[in-house]
Amino acid sequence: MGWFIVKRLTSLIPILFGISLITFILLHLTPGDPAVAYLRASHIPPADETVAALRVELGLDKPLYVQYVEWLGKVVQLDLGMSYVSKKSVWDEIMLHFFPTVQLTLASCILIVVVSLPIGIMSAIYKGKLIDQFSRIIAFVSVSMPAFWFGFLLIYFLSVKLDLFPVLGRGTFAHLVLPSLTLSFAYIGTYMRLLRASVLENLNEPFVMYARARGLRERLIVSRHLLKKSLLPLVTGLGMSLGNMLSGAVIVETVFAWPGMGQLFVTSILTRDYPMIQGCLLFMGVIFVVCNLLVDLAYSFLDPRIRWEGEK
């Protein structure tokens, strides 16, 4: 197991390098001059001489590869530069917005697991029965209903009409309820059905037959045999969704005025805040890589075949 982690970690180095390169190049390929953007953000008219002077100051006159190496050197020290707009450290801004996003993501993940796990399993075991029909409808609604609409419905009924939760913002635990409900709702339907399909597939496997033929109680067969095996496909999906959620849920954050990564990223694009865009992109790339690593680890924990391969 230890070896497996070390191997996976070393394989991350070239990937991270690639991400940094792509982030850098992408931004320099897009039309528009960062120097002009800087001046606009600072409300200074972009006259030719000011622009030229600024290009030298920001190092934009140097060859691209020199800029990249210099930038990378700073990135390694967690120095992502200074925001053009707020004139604060990009790293600090990201950290400031990342924490609310983590909070929202964790709450949503818990909701997803707590809701879709039991319903998914039950609707497989009681296939075609009431609970299965019910889960089918939930799944249908969940994947077809736009998040902003569902969010507004929740606000209208639970906040405005019944006054159970605060409408906007962040602060108390109550503030977290509606945004995480909205964010998780879209995923719940998918995972419920995914789990159901996975359990159904395993239900006809010979190992379940053999477990029954050995006289095991049905409860034990579900909890010990079906659950762990059926979770495998779910883990991959959840890992991907985790990456998605951690890089910010723009719509949900906008609806509930939640100051997360999504808002930060969208604002930085709208104001052409180059260092901030670069910082956000790089940060999200790393988040995805880390989530992938987590999926691999979870997988090897659940499936001994992978663990064994990894140790060979």
Partner: peptide, 15 residues
């Protein structure tokens, strides 16, 4: 008691 037709699939691979 029963012995299954295919031993390779009769056991749960993750146990």
């Amino acid at each position: 008691a029963m012995i299954m037709q295919n031993p390779m699939t009769a056991f749960n691979p993750v146990r």
